[in-house]
Protein backbone atom coordinates (compact mmCIF):
# COMPACT_ATOMS: atom_id res chain seq x y z
CA UNK A 1 0.00 0.00 0.00
CA UNK A 2 2.68 2.44 1.08
CA UNK A 3 4.78 1.56 -1.90
CA UNK A 4 1.92 2.08 -4.35
CA UNK A 5 1.23 5.52 -2.94
CA UNK A 6 4.91 6.30 -3.30
CA UNK A 7 4.99 5.14 -6.91
CA UNK A 8 1.80 7.07 -7.64
CA UNK A 9 3.35 10.24 -6.24
CA UNK A 10 6.44 9.70 -8.34
CA UNK A 11 4.37 9.23 -11.46
CA UNK A 12 2.34 12.39 -10.86
CA UNK A 13 5.49 14.39 -10.16
CA UNK A 14 7.02 13.06 -13.34
CA UNK A 15 3.97 13.91 -15.44
CA UNK A 16 3.81 17.41 -14.04
CA UNK A 17 7.44 17.94 -15.01
CA UNK A 18 7.07 16.48 -18.47
CA UNK A 19 5.25 18.87 -20.73
CA UNK A 20 7.41 21.94 -21.03
CA UNK A 21 8.34 22.04 -24.65
CA UNK A 22 5.07 22.01 -26.61
CA UNK A 23 4.07 24.95 -28.78
CA UNK A 24 2.71 27.64 -26.52
CA UNK A 25 0.34 29.23 -29.03
CA UNK A 26 -1.52 25.97 -29.69
CA UNK A 27 -1.61 25.22 -26.00
CA UNK A 28 -3.14 28.57 -25.14
CA UNK A 29 -5.75 28.10 -27.88
CA UNK A 30 -6.58 24.60 -26.71
CA UNK A 31 -6.84 25.71 -23.09
CA UNK A 32 -8.99 28.70 -24.04
CA UNK A 33 -7.19 31.09 -21.72
CA UNK A 34 -3.81 32.73 -21.23
CA UNK A 35 -1.81 32.14 -18.09
CA UNK A 36 -0.01 35.35 -17.23
CA UNK A 37 2.49 35.95 -14.42
CA UNK A 38 2.09 39.29 -12.62
CA UNK A 39 3.37 40.83 -9.38
CA UNK A 40 1.78 40.05 -6.03
CA UNK A 41 0.42 43.57 -5.91
CA UNK A 42 1.87 46.88 -7.08
CA UNK A 43 -0.64 49.67 -7.48
CA UNK A 44 -1.02 50.81 -11.08
CA UNK A 45 0.98 47.92 -12.51
CA UNK A 46 -0.82 44.81 -11.32
CA UNK A 47 -3.21 44.78 -8.42
CA UNK A 48 -6.70 43.33 -7.94
CA UNK A 49 -9.36 46.05 -7.58
CA UNK A 50 -12.28 46.07 -5.13
CA UNK A 51 -14.15 43.51 -7.26
CA UNK A 52 -11.17 41.16 -7.40
CA UNK A 53 -10.47 42.04 -11.04
CA UNK A 54 -6.80 42.45 -11.86
CA UNK A 55 -6.04 45.98 -13.04
CA UNK A 56 -2.92 47.79 -14.10
CA UNK A 57 -0.29 48.58 -16.68
CA UNK A 58 1.27 45.10 -16.77
CA UNK A 59 -2.13 43.45 -16.51
CA UNK A 60 -3.20 45.36 -19.63
CA UNK A 61 -0.40 43.69 -21.57
CA UNK A 62 -1.64 40.25 -20.50
CA UNK A 63 -5.15 41.22 -21.59
CA UNK A 64 -3.81 42.50 -24.91
CA UNK A 65 -2.10 39.17 -25.65
CA UNK A 66 -5.30 37.32 -24.75
CA UNK A 67 -7.28 39.63 -27.05
CA UNK A 68 -4.83 39.04 -29.90
CA UNK A 69 -4.70 35.27 -29.51
CA UNK A 70 -8.20 34.39 -28.31
CA UNK A 71 -10.15 37.50 -29.26
CA UNK A 72 -11.21 37.91 -25.63
CA UNK A 73 -9.26 40.14 -23.25
CA UNK A 74 -10.91 38.55 -20.22
CA UNK A 75 -9.65 35.04 -21.00
CA UNK A 76 -6.61 35.47 -18.73
CA UNK A 77 -5.66 33.57 -15.65
CA UNK A 78 -3.42 35.80 -13.52
CA UNK A 79 -0.72 34.12 -11.48
CA UNK A 80 0.79 36.36 -8.79
CA UNK A 81 4.54 35.69 -8.49
CA UNK A 82 7.23 36.98 -6.14
CA UNK A 83 10.58 38.18 -7.42
CA UNK A 84 12.10 34.88 -6.42
CA UNK A 85 9.55 32.59 -8.07
CA UNK A 86 8.87 34.45 -11.31
CA UNK A 87 11.56 32.97 -13.59
CA UNK A 88 11.07 29.43 -12.34
CA UNK A 89 7.34 29.72 -12.99
CA UNK A 90 7.96 30.90 -16.54
CA UNK A 91 10.66 28.35 -17.32
CA UNK A 92 8.59 25.46 -15.98
CA UNK A 93 5.58 26.39 -18.11
CA UNK A 94 3.37 27.46 -15.22
CA UNK A 95 2.78 30.77 -16.99
CA UNK A 96 2.81 31.51 -20.74
CA UNK A 97 4.01 35.08 -20.43
CA UNK A 98 5.48 37.10 -17.59
CA UNK A 99 4.48 40.77 -17.31
CA UNK A 100 5.85 41.68 -13.93
CA UNK A 101 7.92 44.88 -14.19
CA UNK A 102 10.96 42.77 -14.90
CA UNK A 103 14.26 44.36 -15.94
CA UNK A 104 15.76 43.25 -19.24
CA UNK A 105 19.38 42.28 -18.59
CA UNK A 106 21.99 40.34 -20.51
CA UNK A 107 22.22 37.42 -18.12
CA UNK A 108 18.46 37.00 -17.84
CA UNK A 109 18.10 37.06 -21.60
CA UNK A 110 21.06 34.80 -22.34
CA UNK A 111 21.92 32.72 -19.29
CA UNK A 112 18.45 32.26 -17.77
CA UNK A 113 17.14 31.31 -21.24
CA UNK A 114 14.34 33.87 -21.25
CA UNK A 115 13.21 36.03 -24.14
CA UNK A 116 12.30 39.66 -23.57
CA UNK A 117 9.82 40.78 -26.20
CA UNK A 118 10.40 44.49 -25.78
CA UNK A 119 10.25 47.29 -23.25
CA UNK A 120 6.91 48.56 -22.04
CA UNK A 121 8.34 50.93 -19.43
CA UNK A 122 11.76 52.59 -19.36
CA UNK A 123 12.61 52.96 -15.71
CA UNK A 124 15.52 53.53 -13.32
CA UNK A 125 16.19 52.70 -9.70
CA UNK A 126 15.42 55.37 -7.13
CA UNK A 127 15.37 55.83 -3.35
CA UNK A 128 12.47 56.91 -1.16
CA UNK A 129 12.93 58.31 2.36
CA UNK A 130 10.60 59.90 4.92
CA UNK A 131 10.67 63.68 4.47
CA UNK A 132 11.47 64.38 8.14
CA UNK A 133 14.71 62.40 7.87
CA UNK A 134 16.07 65.51 6.16
CA UNK A 135 18.00 63.62 3.48
CA UNK A 136 18.17 65.34 0.10
CA UNK A 137 20.59 63.13 -1.82
CA UNK A 138 21.29 59.43 -2.04
CA UNK A 139 24.94 60.26 -1.34
CA UNK A 140 23.96 61.15 2.24
CA UNK A 141 22.74 57.63 2.95
CA UNK A 142 25.99 56.26 4.44
CA UNK A 143 25.12 53.81 7.19
CA UNK A 144 21.40 53.74 6.41
CA UNK A 145 19.17 50.69 6.68
CA UNK A 146 17.67 49.87 3.30
CA UNK A 147 14.62 47.75 2.49
CA UNK A 148 15.24 45.79 -0.68
CA UNK A 149 13.29 43.11 -2.55
CA UNK A 150 15.46 40.02 -2.84
CA UNK A 151 16.32 38.41 -6.16
CA UNK A 152 16.04 41.64 -8.14
CA UNK A 153 18.42 43.72 -10.24
CA UNK A 154 17.85 46.58 -7.79
CA UNK A 155 19.48 44.46 -5.09
CA UNK A 156 22.65 44.20 -7.18
CA UNK A 157 22.55 47.88 -8.21
CA UNK A 158 22.20 48.88 -4.57
CA UNK A 159 25.34 46.95 -3.61
CA UNK A 160 27.22 48.51 -6.55
CA UNK A 161 26.00 52.04 -5.78
CA UNK A 162 27.03 51.96 -2.13
CA UNK A 163 30.39 50.31 -2.67
CA UNK A 164 31.31 52.58 -5.59
CA UNK A 165 30.54 55.61 -3.41
CA UNK A 166 32.47 54.08 -0.51
CA UNK A 167 29.42 53.98 1.73
CA UNK A 168 28.06 51.29 4.02
CA UNK A 169 24.48 50.14 4.47
CA UNK A 170 22.43 47.49 6.19
CA UNK A 171 20.10 45.56 3.88
CA UNK A 172 16.70 44.42 5.14
CA UNK A 173 15.61 41.71 2.69
CA UNK A 174 11.89 41.54 1.90
CA UNK A 175 9.90 39.29 -0.41
CA UNK A 176 7.11 41.48 -1.76
CA UNK A 177 6.31 45.14 -2.25
CA UNK A 178 3.59 44.91 0.42
CA UNK A 179 6.07 43.60 2.97
CA UNK A 180 8.55 46.33 2.05
CA UNK A 181 5.85 48.96 2.48
CA UNK A 182 4.97 47.67 5.93
CA UNK A 183 8.63 47.57 7.06
CA UNK A 184 9.33 51.02 5.63
CA UNK A 185 6.29 52.62 7.24
CA UNK A 186 7.14 51.01 10.58
CA UNK A 187 10.58 52.61 10.34
CA UNK A 188 12.41 49.29 10.33
CA UNK A 189 14.33 50.72 7.39
CA UNK A 190 15.28 54.32 6.61
CA UNK A 191 15.14 53.92 2.85
CA UNK A 192 13.10 51.91 0.38
CA UNK A 193 14.69 51.35 -2.99
CA UNK A 194 13.17 49.91 -6.14
CA UNK A 195 12.31 51.12 -9.64
CA UNK A 196 11.22 54.77 -9.59
CA UNK A 197 7.82 53.82 -11.01
CA UNK A 198 7.39 51.29 -8.20
CA UNK A 199 8.29 53.94 -5.62
CA UNK A 200 5.70 56.32 -7.08
CA UNK A 201 3.10 53.55 -7.13
CA UNK A 202 3.89 52.54 -3.54
CA UNK A 203 3.89 56.11 -2.28
CA UNK A 204 0.48 56.70 -3.89
CA UNK A 205 -1.02 54.10 -1.56
CA UNK A 206 0.38 55.73 1.61
CA UNK A 207 -1.88 57.57 4.02
CA UNK A 208 0.38 60.61 3.75
CA UNK A 209 2.20 60.54 0.38
CA UNK A 210 3.57 64.08 0.92
CA UNK A 211 5.53 62.89 3.95
CA UNK A 212 7.89 60.90 1.74
CA UNK A 213 10.32 62.03 -0.92
CA UNK A 214 11.88 60.19 -3.84
CA UNK A 215 15.52 61.27 -3.97
CA UNK A 216 16.75 62.85 -7.22
CA UNK A 217 19.38 60.19 -7.99
CA UNK A 218 18.41 57.51 -10.47
CA UNK A 219 21.18 54.97 -10.10
CA UNK A 220 20.49 52.50 -12.90
CA UNK A 221 18.79 51.76 -16.18
CA UNK A 222 15.78 49.50 -15.68
CA UNK A 223 14.10 48.70 -18.97
CA UNK A 224 11.01 46.81 -17.83
CA UNK A 225 9.35 44.50 -20.25
CA UNK A 226 7.24 41.38 -20.70
CA UNK A 227 9.05 38.12 -21.39
CA UNK A 228 8.47 34.56 -22.60
CA UNK A 229 10.46 31.33 -22.61
CA UNK A 230 13.46 30.90 -24.87
CA UNK A 231 13.01 28.51 -27.78
CA UNK A 232 9.43 29.18 -28.87
CA UNK A 233 9.97 31.99 -31.35
CA UNK A 234 6.40 31.90 -32.75
CA UNK A 235 4.99 32.63 -29.33
CA UNK A 236 7.68 35.27 -28.76
CA UNK A 237 6.63 36.97 -32.00
CA UNK A 238 2.98 37.07 -30.93
CA UNK A 239 3.89 38.75 -27.63
CA UNK A 240 6.43 41.12 -29.25
CA UNK A 241 4.06 42.34 -31.96
CA UNK A 242 1.16 42.71 -29.58
CA UNK A 243 3.28 45.19 -27.65
CA UNK A 244 4.40 46.85 -30.90
CA UNK A 245 0.80 47.06 -32.10
CA UNK A 246 -0.19 49.02 -28.99
CA UNK A 247 2.75 51.42 -29.42
CA UNK A 248 2.18 51.78 -33.17
CA UNK A 249 -1.54 52.38 -32.61
CA UNK A 250 -0.72 55.39 -30.44
CA UNK A 251 1.68 56.71 -33.05
CA UNK A 252 -0.90 56.25 -35.82
CA UNK A 253 -3.71 57.75 -33.77
CA UNK A 254 -5.75 54.57 -33.47
CA UNK A 255 -7.64 54.46 -30.17
CA UNK A 256 -10.27 52.17 -28.68
CA UNK A 257 -12.84 54.84 -29.53
CA UNK A 258 -12.08 55.11 -33.24
CA UNK A 259 -10.75 51.64 -34.03
CA UNK A 260 -14.11 50.34 -35.31
CA UNK A 261 -14.42 53.30 -37.66
CA UNK A 262 -10.83 52.95 -38.87
CA UNK A 263 -11.20 49.22 -39.40
CA UNK A 264 -13.62 50.02 -42.19
CA UNK A 265 -10.61 51.25 -44.16
CA UNK A 266 -8.50 54.42 -44.11
CA UNK A 267 -6.20 56.30 -46.44
CA UNK A 268 -3.17 55.23 -44.44
CA UNK A 269 -1.96 51.82 -45.67
CA UNK A 270 0.00 51.17 -42.44
CA UNK A 271 -3.18 51.51 -40.36
CA UNK A 272 -4.93 49.21 -42.82
CA UNK A 273 -2.16 46.62 -42.51
CA UNK A 274 -2.19 46.93 -38.72
CA UNK A 275 -5.94 46.48 -38.48
CA UNK A 276 -6.01 43.65 -41.01
CA UNK A 277 -8.00 45.30 -43.77
CA UNK A 278 -5.00 45.08 -46.08
CA UNK A 279 -2.46 42.27 -46.34
CA UNK A 280 -2.38 39.31 -43.97
CA UNK A 281 -0.09 40.21 -41.06
CA UNK A 282 -2.34 38.30 -38.64
CA UNK A 283 -2.10 35.15 -40.70
CA UNK A 284 1.71 35.35 -40.71
CA UNK A 285 1.64 35.38 -36.89
CA UNK A 286 -0.79 32.46 -36.88
CA UNK A 287 -3.59 34.71 -35.62
CA UNK A 288 -6.90 36.03 -36.98
CA UNK A 289 -6.72 39.01 -39.36
CA UNK A 290 -8.39 41.30 -36.81
CA UNK A 291 -5.99 40.50 -33.95
CA UNK A 292 -4.73 44.06 -33.52
CA UNK A 293 -8.28 45.43 -33.79
CA UNK A 294 -9.23 43.24 -30.84
CA UNK A 295 -6.23 44.44 -28.84
CA UNK A 296 -6.98 48.12 -29.39
CA UNK A 297 -10.76 47.82 -29.06
CA UNK A 298 -10.67 45.76 -25.87
CA UNK A 299 -7.54 47.09 -24.15
CA UNK A 300 -6.57 50.32 -25.90
CA UNK A 301 -3.38 51.72 -27.36
CA UNK A 302 -0.21 52.38 -25.29
CA UNK A 303 -1.26 55.91 -24.38
CA UNK A 304 -4.71 54.84 -23.17
CA UNK A 305 -3.22 52.07 -21.04
CA UNK A 306 -0.54 54.38 -19.62
CA UNK A 307 -2.88 57.25 -18.79
CA UNK A 308 -5.56 54.94 -17.45
CA UNK A 309 -3.31 53.14 -15.00
CA UNK A 310 -0.24 55.16 -14.05
CA UNK A 311 -0.53 58.49 -15.89
CA UNK A 312 -0.65 62.03 -14.54
CA UNK A 313 -4.40 61.88 -13.86
CA UNK A 314 -4.10 58.80 -11.64
CA UNK A 315 -2.98 58.80 -7.98
CA UNK A 316 0.38 57.42 -9.12
CA UNK A 317 0.88 60.42 -11.36
CA UNK A 318 3.81 59.35 -13.55
CA UNK A 319 4.61 61.55 -16.52
CA UNK A 320 5.49 59.94 -19.84
CA UNK A 321 9.14 61.05 -19.67
CA UNK A 322 11.32 58.48 -21.44
CA UNK A 323 8.19 56.55 -22.29
CA UNK A 324 6.91 59.12 -24.79
CA UNK A 325 6.75 58.28 -28.51
CA UNK A 326 9.98 58.86 -30.41
CA UNK A 327 8.20 61.64 -32.27
CA UNK A 328 7.79 63.40 -28.90
CA UNK A 329 11.40 62.90 -27.79
CA UNK A 330 10.83 59.63 -25.96
CA UNK A 331 12.17 56.12 -26.53
CA UNK A 332 9.02 54.33 -27.74
CA UNK A 333 9.63 53.26 -31.32
CA UNK A 334 7.62 50.47 -32.88
CA UNK A 335 9.14 48.84 -35.97
CA UNK A 336 7.04 49.22 -39.10
CA UNK A 337 4.04 46.99 -39.72
CA UNK A 338 4.93 45.82 -43.18
Amino acid sequence: MKKSIFLGTLAVAGLAAGFVSAQTLDEVRARGNLSCGVSTGLAGFSMPDANGEWQGFDVAFCRAVAAAVLGDSTAVEFVPLTTQTRFTALASGEVDVLARNTTWTFSRDVDLRLEFVGVNYYDGQGFMVPRDLGVTSALELDGATVCIQTGTTTELNLADFFSSNNMGYEPVPVETNAEAQQQYLAGACDVYTTDASGLAATRATFEDPAGHVVLPEIVSKEPLGPLVRHGDSEWGDVARWTLNAMVAAEELGVTSANVAEMAAGTDNPEINRLLGTEGDLGGMLGLEADWAQNVIAQVGNYDEVFEGNIGASTPIGLSRGLNAQWTDGGLLYAPPFR
Partner: peptide, 22 residues
Amino acid sequence: AIAVGYMDVRGTLGGITISQTG
Protein backbone atom coordinates in the same frame (compact mmCIF):
# COMPACT_ATOMS: atom_id res chain seq x y z
CA ALA B 1 13.33 32.20 8.26
CA ILE B 2 12.27 33.38 4.82
CA ALA B 3 9.07 34.78 6.38
CA VAL B 4 10.99 37.40 8.37
CA GLY B 5 13.95 37.92 6.04
CA TYR B 6 16.48 36.11 8.21
CA MET B 7 19.31 35.24 5.85
CA ASP B 8 19.68 31.52 6.45
CA VAL B 9 20.78 29.02 3.82
CA ARG B 10 17.27 29.09 2.31
CA GLY B 11 17.57 32.88 1.99
CA THR B 12 21.03 33.01 0.43
CA LEU B 13 21.72 29.81 -1.52
CA GLY B 14 18.09 28.76 -1.95
CA GLY B 15 16.73 32.25 -2.49
CA ILE B 16 18.81 35.09 -3.85
CA THR B 17 21.52 32.96 -5.45
CA ILE B 18 18.96 30.83 -7.29
CA SER B 19 17.02 33.78 -8.63
CA GLN B 20 20.17 35.71 -9.59
CA THR B 21 21.81 32.79 -11.38
CA GLY B 22 18.81 30.68 -12.44
